[in-house]
Nucleic acid binder design. Structure first.
Lengths: 205, 205
DNA sequence: ACCTGTCTGGGACACTCGTCCCACTATGGC
DNA sequence: GCCATAGTGGGACGAGTGTCCCAGACAGGT
């Protein structure tokens, strides 16, 4: 094994942990499985990271950061509110479908953190970040479409995240692509209700 | 330990497993923890149940049955569609708040089943049942209000379950009661869009 | 060139896990 | 009353876990 600074090793371990958790589940992401994925000896683990739970904290940060990057691409070029919402929701589902294990690993991570004393604060931060990303997306989307949201964006963002989480959970359970698409159709219809005219442009539906 | 038929023991073990999983998490629901909760010797476990995963199958059945019973009570006596939806959603959230561990245990169970070869079919059945319960609730609610749903009830049911799952997940993460209530306000507004007049009664909103 | 401190990696500890074996005992049908 | 059958329960096995120790090796600053 080459000589690598402890901080670098920690980052590599976080990535390896995410890979293993996405592929085999969080429960299978043992310290041994993680170092095997990273190609390191076991002892490097606790040299770079104080504990396994501490590394999981890094993993959440890793995914949350990636999620923020990916969010921008969800904004399509639809001209009406319903279409824009539908595109964004559909884009998210496509992301989940391309790598179901990763999304599932995030759910497992949240549940694990909720049960682990040292990680109790993690889920709140994680979801605050999700909500912030969704809110930003809603704001820039509204600006691009020339509308405003008739209700607080923070609340709307929380609803949007809830809908995507819920749709993801159901799709993970039954893998019903068509049903998932139909739900997003309805969700886009429903959410479009909250669009209001702003700079003289027309409201949808 | 008194003499108990194996089938009875199996049922008691399923209840004990649910208790432990709700209180301490699914990962803590080991065979030893379950028999301790049930007040049985460890060997009774594999006399009554072939394996731990087989028992978890029973646990899902147990909760799903209870969920079906509880659903009926969610129908309030609101006269308009939005109010009825809001009451039902709020009732569900109240259920979650009264026993967060149980709901969390169900999420953990779904995730675990998705990762466990012998339990792959479980989540699909579980969610099919959820969707059926929601659909039945939507149907009887519509009949009571004298409206019809403008979109397929099966799709609407899937959306409703998704919204409740999503709201639950976010609330479990940050325990923000007020935000959860505001989201349900929006959700009720949004879902009311799908109500259409049927027997001459008035549409809301 | 040396030497302090960072990094390596094999091995082990103490523990928990699911599962199983087997000697034992109470029970219901004859 | 006897005996096959169903239920009991202590104990153990092998595998897997997170964490830690410690002897060794390499690096950069002097």
């Amino acid at each position: 094994m080459a000589r690598i600074a402890a901080a670098d090793r920690r980052a590599r371990l976080a990535e390896a942990a995410l890979t293993v958790a996405a592929r085999d589940g969080l429960a299978a992401a043992s310290t041994r499985a993680i170092v095997a994925e990273a190609g390191m000896p076991l002892a490097s683990f606790h040299y770079a990271v104080p504990s396994r739970d501490e590394l999981l904290r890094d993993v959440v940060g890793l995914v949350v950061a990636q999620e923020g990057d990916a969010a921008g691409a969800l904004l399509g070029d639809a001209a009406d509110v319903r279409g824009a919402l539908r595109d964004a929701l559909g884009g998210y589902l496509a992301l989940v479908r391309r790598d179901p294990g990763r999304e599932q690993a995030m759910f497992e991570l949240t549940q694990h953190a909720l049960r682990t004393p040292g990680l109790h604060d993690l889920p709140a931060e994680q979801y605050a970040r999700y909500h912030a990303v969704a809110a930003a997306l809603l704001e820039t989307g509204a600006a691009r479409l020339g509308i405003r949201w008739a209700v607080p964006v923070a609340d709307l963002a929380r609803l949007v995240v809830g809908i995507t989480d819920g749709a993801t959970l159901a799709w993970l359970a039954d893998r019903d692509d068509a049903a998932a698409e139909r739900v997003l159709d309805l969700a886009a219809d429903a959410l479009a209700v909250f669009a209001a005219p702003d700079t003289g442009s027309k409201e949808t539906r």
